[in-house]
């Protein structure tokens, strides 16, 4: 769509600007403020320069948390994206069953995150949970509060349960936009199922899949509530991801300086990924062409 240049449009944007500035810029400036100062309490602050940043960059704790975080996000993407595409390919195209699938698949997405944690906390318990009890009855040792591997598996399966539907729904939306003529042409050419997927479905889904990958990466990168409820970051620090570590530092130990420096670096990383996301989105808009 050709847009007219109109500087007065700023007035329409102004309310959003004021509101988001109040809820984003002011708090962010507080963080910046803390990150360069030190305090001995009583609200007396003095300049610390980049000391906190240097500290954090050398802190093993942060690098470990980052390592766990990246591993977690990588596992999540490796499972959810293919599984989501696979589910989307198997969804009914229209009719009552399509609606039933859409609604049931959306359900996990709409559950409060701490309840997601609670559900899996209960589900995985050996004494009262279906999963834990079944595994125990099969003779598989499983205890997510003691065993690191079990804790990881629980957190990963929980996230797969929670978010795979998002990938599937996006991929499904992409598939729906493919005209029937494409499939008919493939049929005439006697293209194999794999060829149809590779040369028709995958390219048509590419845009939405990029969105899905980025959304899943971002959201898994800032995951907090669900593992916090299930494992509390344990056993030990095994499932302490970046956000959990940050909240521990800021609200638990009140180490404002390091926590703020940590926040800034965390936020800059997010900013970088957001930029990639934005580029993808705007490219997608352009591909759609003028409407």
């Amino acid at each position: 769509m050709n847009k007219t240049v109109n500087q007065k449009a700023w007035f329409l944007v102004l309310p959003v600007l004021v509101l988001v500035a109040f809820s984003a810029v002011i708090p962010l400036m507080t963080v910046v403020n803390y990150s360069v100062q030190d305090s001995f309490g009583d609200n007396v602050f003095f300049w610390a320069g980049l000391e906190w940043f240097r500290d954090m960059l050398q802190s093993e704790r942060m690098w470990n948390a980052l390592g766990r975080q990246l591993l977690f996000s990588a596992i999540i993407l490796a499972i959810q994206i293919p599984l989501g595409i696979f589910v989307a390919l198997n969804m009914p195209k229209k009719g009552v069953w399509a609606s039933v699938c859409l609604v049931l698949m959306s359900l996990p997405l709409l559950i409060p995150w701490n309840v997601v944690g609670t559900i899996w906390q209960i589900f995985g318990r050996v004494d009262i949970g279906l999963l834990g009890h079944t595994l125990d009855a099969l003779g598989i040792p499983y205890n997510y509060t003691q065993n690191t591997l079990a804790a990881w598996i629980t957190v990963v399966v929980m996230d797969v349960w929670h978010w795979t539907s998002l990938v599937a729904l996006l991929a499904y939306a992409g598939l729906q936009s493919i005209p029937d003529a494409y499939y008919q042409a493939a049929k005439i050419d006697q293209a194999s199922r794999w060829k149809v997927f590779r040369y028709i479905e995958l390219p048509k889904m590419a845009g939405v899949l990029m969105i899905a990958i980025l959304l899943r990466f971002m959201d898994s990168f800032m995951i907090y509530t669900e593992p916090f409820v299930v494992t509390g970051g344990g056993p030990g620090n095994a499932t302490t991801f970046l956000s959990i570590d940050l909240v521990k530092m800021a609200l638990g130990q009140f180490d404002l300086g390091p926590a703020a420096a940590f926040s800034i670096m965390y936020f800059l990383t997010i900013l970088l990924i957001s930029w990639v996301f934005y580029t993808v989105m705007t490219n997608l808009d352009r591909q759609e062409g003028p409407q």
Partner: peptide, 18 residues
Amino acid sequence: FWLLTNRMAPPAVFALPF
């Protein structure tokens, strides 16, 4: 773009300043 970064911002970063 700036709006988008706020959607992507980790709430954990904002908890304390809020």
